[in-house]
């Protein structure tokens, strides 16, 4: 469970978030939407402790993140799988090695790591491209490799920031069904997106941010 409790983030005179309170339940899949500058990215950054709130508290599974010190941040971040809009794969290594990165930092043995990477690539349908260089992949494939990397270490939460921003509608809906598939096996999923036509077809809660506050929520 993720709880934002009257969270604010100020940058000088600008309020990126203003007393924002929201809750995402364990095992839920939710969409976060709103105009550019509404505070979506700030919210995700705060959740991943890439930034700290100016006020209020963020609790994950009942525990306040304010108490997490610098040394424990990496361990906290490993509870999240993150998918970026621009996939952020590393082009100096193969698809396999990209997906293996979260396992390397968690200290998995090579054999176990190999098994998990292959399983994750299989789930996103890209096992055949295991040895390929990401530079040779299409946009949709890159994003699916990004998703494989996000889920390979079996995180509790899957966070995606505009994962379909660069994709056409058919590919976008394919990506969304991947997220739904992971949600169905118990992962809590939070997707920030502009793609209203797509998400209105899906039956999940939609949280709308406006000027740093929660403007509305529709349950799916």
């Amino acid at each position: 469970m993720i709880e934002f409790d009257r969270v604010s983030r100020r940058f000088g005179d600008i309020h990126a978030l203003r007393y924002l309170s929201l809750t995402i339940d364990q095992g839920e899949m939710a969409f976060l939407t709103g105009h550019s500058g509404a505070g979506k990215s700030t919210l995700l950054r705060l959740l991943l402790l890439l930034d700290r709130p100016s006020g209020g508290d963020i609790r994950v599974c009942g525990e306040s993140t304010a108490k997490i010190g610098t040394g424990s941040v990496p361990q906290y971040r490993r509870r999240f799988g993150v998918v970026f809009q621009d996939h952020r794969l590393l082009f100096d290594r193969s698809v396999h090695d990209n997906v293996a990165l979260p396992l390397a930092m968690a200290g998995y043995a090579p054999r176990e790591s190999q098994r998990r990477v292959r399983a994750a690539l299989d789930k996103v349908g890209l096992l055949a491209l295991e040895r390929a260089n990401p530079a040779s992949l299409s946009g949709g494939e890159l994003q699916r490799v990004g998703i494989a990397r996000a889920v390979v270490a079996k995180p509790e939460f899957l966070i995606a920031d505009e994962p379909t921003g660069n994709l056409d509608p058919a590919l976008s809906s394919e990506i969304m069904s991947l997220f739904e598939a992971f949600n169905q096996v118990g992962v809590t999923v939070l997707v920030a997106t502009h793609d209203l036509p797509l998400i209105s077809r899906l039956r999940h809660r939609i949280l709308t941010l406006s000027a740093g506050s929660l403007a509305g929520q529709e349950s799916g």
């Binding site: 890439l50 990496p74 490993r78 509870r79 990165l101 930092m105």
Partner: peptide, 8 residues
């Protein structure tokens, strides 16, 4: 990327 994914 590594830092966001929780690399120490």
């Amino acid at each position: 990327v590594v830092s966001v994914m929780g690399g120490s």
